Simulated scan of single mutants.
Amino acid sequence: MALRDIKPTRSELINLKRKIQLSERGYKILKMKRDGLIMEFFKILAEAKDSRGELLKKYQHAVEMMAVANTVEGAI
């Protein structure tokens, strides 16, 4: 908004103050949403790490079982 677009009247001052208040409220709401999304992201990240750990354990067990099967049956 350029300075020449603003009229030096009391009503214009009131309108600008309202716009500023609206902008500040919108900023606070967006900040709260961002914080909520970050908390949710970290919760999902922790779950993903746990799932990855379990998957890695199952994979290692499967590799060991394949090695045992290969030893017992031989390469067919």
Rank of each mutant, 00 (worst) to 15 (best):
S23E: 09
Q21W: 10
E73P: 05
E47W: 00
M39D: 09
R4E: 02
A48D: 05
R18Q: 11
G26R: 14
E12S: 09
K19N: 14
G53V: 00
E73C: 15
K31L: 13
A69F: 14
I44P: 00
L45I: 01
L37I: 09
K31Q: 15
P8N: 02
R52K: 03
T9M: 04
L30T: 05
R34C: 07
L30G: 04
Y59E: 02
L37C: 08
R18C: 07
L3Y: 05
L37T: 08
M65G: 03
R10S: 15
A46E: 04
K49P: 00
K43N: 03
M1V: 04
E64K: 15
E40H: 07
L13K: 11
G26K: 15
G74P: 00
I14A: 15
K17P: 05
F42W: 06
M39L: 10
K17G: 10
F41R: 04
N15K: 13
I76A: 12
I6T: 07
K7C: 06
P8H: 01
L22I: 06
M1Q: 03
I38N: 05
D5R: 04
L56K: 01
I6Q: 08
D5C: 04
G26H: 14
I14N: 11
K33I: 07
K31F: 11
M32K: 12
V68G: 03
G74W: 08
K7W: 06
E12L: 06
R34V: 06
I44V: 13
L13E: 10
A67N: 10
M32P: 00
I38M: 11
N15S: 14
F41L: 06
M65V: 08
K58T: 01
G36N: 12
V68K: 11
R10Y: 14
Q21P: 02
G36M: 10
E24V: 07
K58E: 09
R34A: 08
Y27S: 10
G74D: 13
N15D: 12
K43M: 02
R10N: 15
K43R: 05
K58D: 05
I20G: 08
N15F: 10
D50P: 00
E12N: 07
T9Q: 03
L45G: 02
L3T: 11
G26M: 14
E54D: 04
K49C: 00
K19E: 15
K43E: 04
K43S: 03
E73M: 15
I76Q: 11
Q60I: 02
F41Q: 06
P8Y: 01
I14P: 05
V68I: 10
K7S: 09
M1E: 05
M66A: 15
A46R: 01
H61M: 13
K31I: 13
R52S: 02
M65F: 05
S23C: 07
D5P: 00
M32L: 12
S51D: 04
R34D: 04
L16C: 10
F42E: 09
E40A: 09
M1L: 05
K57D: 07
L16R: 12
K58N: 06
K7Q: 09
A69Y: 13
T71R: 12
K49Y: 02
S11H: 07
Y59D: 04
I44W: 02
Q60S: 03
M39Y: 08
G36L: 09
E73I: 11
Q60T: 03
R25A: 09
E47K: 01
E73A: 15
A48W: 01
G53T: 01
R18W: 09
Y27D: 06
H61Q: 14
G53N: 03
R4V: 06
E54R: 02
E12A: 12
I38F: 08
R10P: 13
